[in-house]
């Protein structure tokens, strides 16, 4: 498993990642939220003006050691949903918007590319948040930002449950493969149906046992941790303010056009 994977798939922080040198999760939440807001605020035919926004995932990925491959692999899972959203645009909006080298491009295709681009930018920013900050710190950040505790606890449980579900699924598939035929055994549809039912029951059983273990150690609905977050205005405030100013700049100024004009003007 890669260096940053545990923060996404487990409820644990990777000791290989020094969290002390990373922005406070509150700053990260605010920046991610501002980024998504900026991305979604652009019109449906905007493409070129979105390009400066790629600077954010590229910089964060480079700074915190997230490989482009790992990021894209995870973002790929969201692609079918993204494509589905814009799928009918080329059919519904046939008005020609652009003429490039004799080829005409309809408004539907432009908006389709724009939707895909904006969605992937938003998805990658969320994935980056999860890959660079352990889930428990993200939840602590939310709690410090006065998000209702019950919601944060639900998120923690959901995350833990996903982890249990994944573990149980892996065990079941392994048990199936060991008794199945062939080098790459496939799970038959009829078997898959009963396996999914069984998987849910097993994961629920396991979740009950974990919940019991929490209860006997005094769990009362609040998950308390001993590592308080420390918000440094110079580091975390600077991080948040710097990025928000950049997003405002990208939103207000057509940077690609300005850059093009500046290069041509010289």
């Amino acid at each position: 498993m890669g260096r940053v994977e545990p923060s996404l798939f487990s409820s644990t922080s990777d000791p290989g990642i020094d969290q002390a040198n990373r922005p406070d999760p509150r700053a990260f939440w605010v920046v991610t939220f501002a980024f998504v807001l900026t991305v979604t605020s652009f019109g449906k035919y905007e493409i070129s003006r979105l390009t400066p926004l790629f600077f954010y995932p590229v910089t964060i990925g480079t700074l915190y050691g997230v490989s482009a491959r790992a990021l894209l692999r995870k973002a790929f899972f969201a692609l079918p949903f993204v494509l589905l959203v814009g799928l009918f645009n080329p059919l519904l909006d046939r008005q020609v918007l652009l003429e490039i080298g004799g080829y005409s491009l309809s408004g539907g295709w432009v908006s389709f590319f724009s939707i895909t681009m904006r969605s992937m930018l938003a998805v990658t920013s969320a994935i980056l948040l999860a890959m660079t900050t352990p889930f428990d710190r993200l939840c602590l950040g939310l709690e410090k930002m006065r998000v209702p505790r019950v919601l944060v606890t639900q998120l923690q449980f959901l995350h833990r449950y996903m982890f249990l579900l994944r573990g149980e699924a892996l065990r079941m598939v392994r048990a199936h493969d060991l008794r199945a035929q062939g080098n790459k055994p496939r799970i038959a549809l009829s078997t898959a149906g009963s396996m999914i039912g069984l998987l849910l029951l097993r994961a629920l059983d396991r979740a009950t046992r974990v919940h019991r273990a929490m209860l006997v150690r005094g769990f009362d609905g609040e998950v308390r941790v001993l590592h308080p977050l420390r918000f440094s205005w110079s580091r975390d405030g600077g991080f948040a303010l710097g990025w928000i100013l950049y997003f405002v700049l990208v939103r207000l100024v057509n940077l690609p056009e300005w850059l093009f004009g500046w290069v041509v003007g010289r």
Binding site: S11, T12, P134, R209, A213, M214, R217, F219, V225, L226
Partner: peptide, 25 residues
């Protein structure tokens, strides 16, 4: 109470956090 499967008993991010869970509560 020590459970049969320690996997069920350990649910916090680190060993320290897990051992601290009860006293914090």
């Amino acid at each position: 109470f020590v459970f049969q499967d320690p996997e069920d008993q350990l649910f916090m991010p680190t060993v320290f956090d897990d051992v601290a869970f009860g006293p914090l509560n």
